[in-house]
């Protein structure tokens, strides 16, 4: 066997790949589930916090800023480990899936709140005044006049941040979530062959590469243009 053949036989072993393909596919489903949950709940919570912050209630805003700073400072893996290995001491035992979901959703919430908030504050004061002078309420102004302008501005930073955080689903493998990396790792130790890992890597690219390319196009479409 030539070196090349041995390389292919080791890293791209057809038999091993075929055997563990179903595992990788089921890992992909878990990754997608996690990703969708994280994106939906994280962005919704982030937007909600930004809206509450725009009410300008002092003590509430300090609390929001602290929470946001906290989840921006802590490494996501630390939050996951704290939830999964720490909370059981307080008689709360979230599963690995729930720990990963909530941790990353909190992180996305923190980052997106900052971005939404920056977007809201960047809308000119005159927009508020014009709208309020025609009788629109604070909430109506926020929804009809300010948010549409703010969101447009936030799309590029938001997509990049969302992708970066959603990729963190791979961290779930540390707390026994059977997502792609988890499935691939256990397949490697079962088969004594790294081919499942290569498959797992490919699976991530299949999921995330289209999103990254799409984000790049969004970025050139929205950035700097007004």
């Amino acid at each position: 066997m030539s070196t090349w053949d041995r390389f292919v036989d080791t890293f791209f072993n057809g038999k091993v790949m075929l055997k563990y393909l179903p595992d990788i596919l089921s890992g992909m489903v878990v990754t997608i589930e996690l990703a969708v949950l994280i994106v939906l709940s994280g962005l919704a919570a982030g937007l909600a916090l930004a809206l509450v912050r725009s009410l300008a209630i002092r003590p509430l805003n300090w609390l929001i800023i602290f929470i946001v700073d906290l989840f921006r400072s802590l490494p996501p893996l630390v939050i996951i480990v704290l939830m999964y290995f720490g909370l059981p001491y307080a008689e709360i035992s979230p599963s690995g899936f729930v720990s990963t979901w909530l941790s990353l959703a909190f992180v996305l919430m923190a980052f997106s709140e900052e971005i939404f908030w920056a977007g809201i504050t960047s809308v000119h004061k005159g927009q508020w005044e014009a709208s309020r002078s025609t009788g629109l309420s604070f909430g109506q102004t926020l929804i009809n006049v300010v948010l549409p302008q703010a969101l447009r501005l936030t799309i590029p930073p938001l997509t990049n941040r969302t992708i970066a955080i959603t990729k963190g689903t791979a961290l779930g493998t540390v707390v026994a979530v059977t997502e792609i990396l988890g499935e691939a790792s256990s397949a490697v130790s079962n088969s004594y062959n790294p081919s499942p890992l290569m498959m797992g890597a490919a699976a991530y690219l299949v999921l995330f590469l289209p999103v990254v390319v799409l984000a790049r196009r969004l970025e050139t479409k929205f950035a700097w243009k007004r």
Binding site: K167, A170, L197, M198, G200, Y204, L205
Partner: peptide, 23 residues
Amino acid sequence: VDFFRAFPPLVLLILLFAGLPFA
């Protein structure tokens, strides 16, 4: 650049750590 933006860093790390020994 896009490749690494799409690739979770942990996967890259595991790939090096658990994959390379096979080579």
